[in-house]
Amino acid sequence: MKVRMLLFAVLRDIVGADEREIEVADGVRAIDLWNDLRATHPRIAPYERPPFTAVNQDYVKPETVLHDGDEVAFIPPVSGG
């Protein structure tokens, strides 16, 4: 199945992409995609968990299981206001 991963701000700059379509196995969790990012990007590696995770524009726990067509967003620490 396929999911879409969105990255913003500092995460987008580190990874060098704001959006990726990824082919994943059934049962994959958001945190599994995060761990793939940690493995390939030393500046993400220290973060055992993403600061925020959203699936289809709702904040969720990173252990959330993804489904075909889901849009998963990894959100750096927010600093609005």
Binding site: F8, A9, V10, D13, R43, P46, Y47, F52, A54, Y59, I75, P76, P77, V78, S79, G80, G81
Partner: peptide, 27 residues
């Protein structure tokens, strides 16, 4: 204001004489 600062997905990149930096990212 307290709630906006906690959950709204907005990020700031500060610029000073020494360059630019996203706020809040460790390392």
């Amino acid at each position: 204001i307290e709630r906006v600062k906690k959950t709204v997905p907005i990020w700031k990149r500060e610029k000073g004489p020494d360059g630019e930096e996203w706020v809040g990212w460790q390392g």
